Computed example of a mutant assay.
Amino acid sequence: MFSQATPYVLYGAPHSLYTGKARCYLRNQGIAYVERPTSHPDFVARIAPALGRAIIPVLETPDGEIIQDTIDIIDYFERRGDVRPVYPSTPLQHVVAVIIEYFGCQAMRKHAMHYRWSYLPEQRDFLWHAFVTGSGEAVAEKVMGRMHSYLPALGVTEQTAPLIERSYETLLDTLEAHFAVMPYLLGGRPSIADYGLIAPLFAHLGRDPVPAAIMKQRAPRVFRWVERMNAPGLDTVEYPEQASAFVADDTIPPSLEPFLRHVAEDIFPELDDKLDFFDRWIAEQRPADGRPVADKPHRRQLGTVNTQYRGVPIEVGAEPYLLYVLQRAADTMAIVNDEAAARVGTQLERLGLARAVPSGRDYRVARENNIEVWRFD
């Protein structure tokens, strides 16, 4: 546990998907912090100018370091070694955890944004309160309009909406069965997989009235997991015999496998097509080592990709940040011995997830001064 005299400061918002991920980590790990909105004078005067963009969440450390992005925030504390590690030390669990984190923080933006904005008339008062509380009426109206406009670029259309809702229901059903057995995805304590999944399952799907009602009625154990992830420490009262450790012997719990197969069905072929897009873009553009991935700090997409979501054609934005998430799985595969790599590869193939590990590329995405940049081997 941390006991610093000056607490960490988390700049964010209660209804923010990525703030929820960082907040859960700080609470679970017992790290003292205070949370401030983007309207706070320090964010306006110091934080946003230092980043070159207004983006959340941002962590300011007691010594004044500014860290933006949930991966970087979590890794800052993981490197200190004063917390329960959230990255499994064994390769299969580590790789699967990173893939689940990608699914939650990237692929599930479809689910989160569809339920938030496609059902705006049914939950307008709730959302208006959330956005006004953090930023005031004038800014809230502008931000809400901008967020709503993102739906097509995420693949949320009239044609895909029923598929997204069916996917959400299947996700709830498969997780409900798993949480009947253990409190977290990989055992008795949260991993980076739990923190990736809580991002959409709290701020949007577990909090906004329409999807939260579906969750409570269809999957009460999933809702309880959302509560558990927002509690301090390990809130596992329903599992008195569960040790606070990951499942032994680098195995994936059988109860989690239906969920993982659902993940595979949801992320492909979109992920394949985005990775192909990046390969072509790098070959054609040949960016310099260390060059920012986009021409402006606030811009995250390099272009659009024609792909499919569950058989329906969509055109979505291609954000190199997904490489920053998934290349950690490729890095794990690169350092294990041949026997372990073969074992992990076999299990990933069985689950349909092998293509989610972006191995064999001579480029990667790094972050310097809180901005994504290209790096080459």
Rank of each mutant, 00 (worst) to 15 (best):
F2Q: 14
Q4Y: 15
Y8M: 09
Y11D: 05
Y11G: 03
G12R: 06
P14N: 07
P14W: 00
S16I: 09
L17K: 10
G20E: 04
G20T: 13
A32Y: 06
P41Q: 08
A45N: 15
A48V: 07
L51P: 13
L51C: 12
R53G: 01
I56K: 05
L59I: 10
I71T: 15
I74N: 03
I74M: 14
F77N: 09
D82G: 15
Y87T: 09
S89M: 10
S89I: 04
S89G: 15
T90H: 11
Q93E: 13
H94P: 11
V95S: 11
F103C: 13
G104I: 07
Q106R: 13
M108N: 12
R109Y: 06
H111M: 12
Y115C: 06
Y115I: 03
R116D: 06
W117G: 02
E122Q: 15
R124T: 12
V132W: 02
V132N: 11
T133A: 15
K142G: 11
G145D: 08
G145Y: 03
S149N: 11
P152N: 09
V156Q: 05
V156D: 06
V156T: 09
T157Y: 04
T157C: 07
I164R: 00
E165G: 11
E165S: 11
S167Q: 08
S167P: 04
E169T: 14
D173A: 14
L175D: 02
E176C: 07
F179Y: 11
Y184M: 02
L186E: 05
L186Y: 08
G188A: 10
G188F: 06
Y195S: 05
Y195F: 15
Y195M: 03
G196I: 06
A199F: 03
P200Y: 05
F202E: 15
M215A: 03
M215D: 04
P220C: 04
P220S: 04
V226A: 14
E227V: 07
A231P: 12
A231E: 11
P232H: 13
G233F: 05
G233I: 04
T236G: 02
V237A: 14
P240F: 14
E241C: 09
F246V: 04
D249E: 14
F259Q: 02
A264H: 04
E265W: 05
E265D: 14
I267R: 01
F268E: 12
D272G: 00
K274C: 10
W281Q: 02
I282F: 01
I282G: 02
R291I: 01
P292T: 10
A294H: 01
R299V: 08
R300F: 10
L302T: 06
T304S: 13
V305L: 03
N306H: 13
N306K: 13
R310T: 00
I314T: 08
G317D: 04
L322Q: 13
Y324R: 09
L326D: 12
D331G: 00
V336E: 09
D338I: 01
E339T: 10
R343T: 08
G345M: 00
T346E: 09
G360H: 02
I371S: 03
I371V: 12
E372C: 00
V373N: 01
